[in-house]
Nucleic acid binder design. Structure first.
Lengths: 254, 254
DNA sequence: ACCTTACGACAACACCATTGACGTGTAAAT
DNA sequence: ATTTACACGTCAATGGTGTTGTCGTAAGGT
């Protein structure tokens, strides 16, 4: 097989398609995102994307080696959008909360791409910028580095994992999606108290709570726990182990 | 369309296939799990499952209305395996930790299937039993019901989300898996301290920590935060929110 | 021994991603 | 201004997918 994909920088000849569209990497990514957001996750196929572009489906392979490459590009775009126009405030807790919710929201807005991308490490520009920012927030809060790293890991994976989890629900075919939601009333609502006392006792609360995402509360709990592990700042107390904060650089930059 | 599926209880005629296999719901689920664990998630298609069963693919539709119904059965089977042989100890914290780690482990042991199943609500026996157990653990710890429900939601979704996240990594094609791991050295290791000071400062710790799962620590943080919200038992004190219980237990690690 | 019908098999449909071959129009080179 | 090269859009084909309508047969109840 001859390599069909030419890197975007090396492109010269922009021949219009039969229907008059002029393709580009950027235009394909945007069309794909629009397609998914307008017609649902199922609408994203190479064939339909071709149709939406006004081009033969196979033309897409001149820009992306396969659909996986295309989806990674969509994901990178999503990471970028999650960070767009955000600046750290200096309050580590508020900052982490904002970052977490932004990642979550951004991925949820494009479930299909989120599903494929949430568990990959791309190493692209948007990703490294996000990593740098989060590490900066944690370090400027004076957590010791070994703790910073573990907290970073837990925080990011939790954001991505929940994003993927919730995106997966949104990406389900309509029917399956509704079926899952219905289960809480249809099945759990009918379990007898004799065999399932705790479900019976909490059912209304439960069915209601399960409609939304568990992430915001899980995030809050994580922030609580992080705060509890914050080394004392001015008070000399503590001394439990060797994890005192050392004075360090400002650490933060977007 | 006539309904093709007959409920398992009403089955009488077990006609063997041409190749001599006698089908059943149970046997199909087990074959599907084996297929997936041996040959990867991509190996699970109706046609291949039919071949593995020694039956025509369409015969499967006599047992499951569609592939989604089959997936739900796989999911419930995994939940069941996670609970096998476990009993609550009465220590809510130890119990939740055990449940979380068991779910995580069970899904990881069958990554391909977990990926397909981790985000579905099945409403089946194994699932309801798990829900009942977890609610019971939280309620017996004396959390008020509205809090129990939110904690249940956060806890379960966290376990499933991380399970799916880590399963996804394990399920990647060998090449992509190694490529992702490599990124931490190849890309992050080469970022200049000038533009990415925090990454540069923590890189060795970071690259090391990112090799494992972030779940055990994230779980520990969640348990910490839950403990901090435990209503005071004998002491009348109360400050409703925030950071009481700052210096609680050492909050061990995996 | 006879019916009934459950259920396995077959064939067909519509969709999917991907690829090799082809020819045309663009942009660079002369 | 003309030629040339090749980028890239198009076509056609391959081999996959889930799903369904139809049919025949053998298993079970009677």
């Amino acid at each position: 097989m001859v390599e069909r994909v030419v890197p975007e920088s090396g492109r010269r000849r922009r021949r219009p398609t039969k229907q008059g569209a002029v393709l580009s990497e950027r235009m394909i990514v945007e069309t794909a995102l629009r397609l998914v957001s307008q017609h649902g996750a199922e609408a994203l196929s190479v064939r339909r994307l071709g149709a939406a572009l006004g081009a033969d489906p196979s033309a897409i392979y001149r820009y992306f080696r396969n659909t996986d490459a295309l989806l990674l590009s969509l994901a990178d775009e999503l990471i970028g959008r999650a960070q767009e126009g955000w600046e750290p405030t200096g309050d580590w807790r508020a900052d982490l909360r904002a970052i977490g919710l932004r990642i979550h929201a951004s991925y949820r807005s494009n479930p299909q791409a989120a599903l494929l991308a949430a568990h990959r490490t791309t190493g692209r520009a948007h990703e490294t910028r996000a990593v740098e920012t989060i590490l900066g927030v944690l370090r400027s809060a004076n957590f010791p580095d070994p703790l910073v790293v573990r907290m970073y890991h837990a925080f990011v994976d939790q954001a991505l994992a929940f994003a993927a989890q919730d995106a997966a629900a949104l990406a389900l075919p309509q029917a399956a999606h509704e079926a899952d939601a219905e289960v809480w009333h249809a099945v759990y609502g009918k379990l007898p108290a004799a065999t399932h006392p705790n479900i019976a006792a909490t059912l209304p609360l439960l069915a209601d709570d399960m409609r939304g995402s568990g992430y915001p509360f899980a995030l809050e709990l994580m922030l609580d726990a992080m705060a509890a592990r914050l080394p004392a700042t001015s008070v000399p107390a503590d001394g439990s182990r060797d994890r005192r904060a050392r004075a360090r650089r400002p650490a933060n930059r977007a």
